[in-house]
């Protein structure tokens, strides 16, 4: 099933219900280190930005949300895709078995690491990187894997002739785009991103943001993106959560928060960035 069909099929019934329901999520490493009492809902196709300075707990929250680290308390419910065996059912992420979580992570979910080296297999070619999720799902046709590799390189604006090259021969921006392709090949509904533009030059960042914005809209992806860069948040996110010392201090539509912040910390954060 391609992305367009997926949207048609899901569009009517799917969009009115949340994809992810998070209640009272807490994980503390020390006093005000980690995150506490976080609740929100995320809808299909929605991009949620988590902003705050380093140490505010946004990366901890992302680990909890993406099934990588169990919380001290709180619940994460995820609504499984219609194509799934248990169509439309809710899955309690940390009550589910590790097998269910792993399946989710390599099918309906994606995770884009800040450092592409953590998200790519550096020792195998770009094509193998893109094909891995498909192979894990049981695709056993070499030509089909090849075709998917070429298609996705194209979509993330990498010359398809580089399909057999190793990622280490790619620039930082290309590696990050390859990591995105590797995640999106399985047609995920929800993608987590940890400072995806973090290690890149400003000009490279702009191109990557542009590409990401296009793909998110085109594929109707729900995204949770952690960033300390408010420009990235403004460009990609529909809604923002502002974190400080493990607490969510303010949440709302991106424009609202960036143009009219209410909480003193949000005001400080916004004023510290040069306005465009």
């Amino acid at each position: 099933m391609n992305a367009a069909q997926q949207i048609d099929r899901d569009a009517v019934s799917d969009r009115t219900q949340p994809l992810l329901k998070v209640r009272g999520l807490t994980k503390l490493y020390g006093p005000e280190k980690g995150c506490q009492d976080v609740s929100f809902e995320l809808y299909p196709g929605e991009v949620l930005g988590i902003v705050g300075e380093s140490g505010s707990g946004k990366s901890t929250l992302l680990s909890l949300l993406s099934g990588r680290c169990p919380p001290d308390s709180g619940v994460i419910d995820y609504r499984l895709a219609d194509t799934h065996k248990s169509a439309g059912q809710w899955l309690d992420l940390y009550s589910a078995s590790e097998a269910e979580r792993r399946t989710l992570l390599r099918t309906e979910w994606g995770f884009v690491e800040q450092n592409p080296r953590d998200g790519l297999r550096m020792a195998v070619s770009a094509g193998a990187n893109i094909g891995e999720r498909l192979m894990a799902q049981g695709v056993r046709n070499y030509q089909a894997l090849r075709a998917a590799g070429l298609d996705w390189l194209n979509q993330v604006e990498i010359d398809p002739a580089r399909i057999d090259d190793l990622p280490r021969t790619f620039s930082g921006g290309m590696q990050q785009r390859l990591q995105i392709a590797r995640n999106l090949v399985s047609g995920p509904r929800l993608v987590f991103m940890d400072e995806p533009t973090g290690g890149l030059d400003v000009s490279v960042q702009a191109r990557l943001l542009d590409l990401m914005r296009g793909l998110v809209r085109e594929l109707d992806l729900a995204v949770v993106i952690v960033t300390h860069d408010l420009a990235v948040a403004r460009l990609l996110a529909d809604r923002l959560m502002v974190m400080r010392r493990s607490h969510v201090v303010e949440t709302g539509l991106t424009d609202q928060i960036l143009d009219d912040p209410q909480h003193p910390y949000s005001q400080l954060l916004v004023s510290s960035v040069l306005q465009p």
């Binding site: 590790e98 097998a99 195998v124 070619s125 094509g127 891995e132 192979m135 894997l145």
Partner: peptide, 22 residues
């Protein structure tokens, strides 16, 4: 051991794919 338990073998074919590509 976790990979065996969860039938998580996709990576085995990554090696075979890479052989054919190379």
């Amino acid at each position: 051991r976790t990979m065996h338990a969860l039938n998580d073998y996709g990576v085995m074919h990554v090696k075979l794919y890479e052989d054919i590509a190379t």
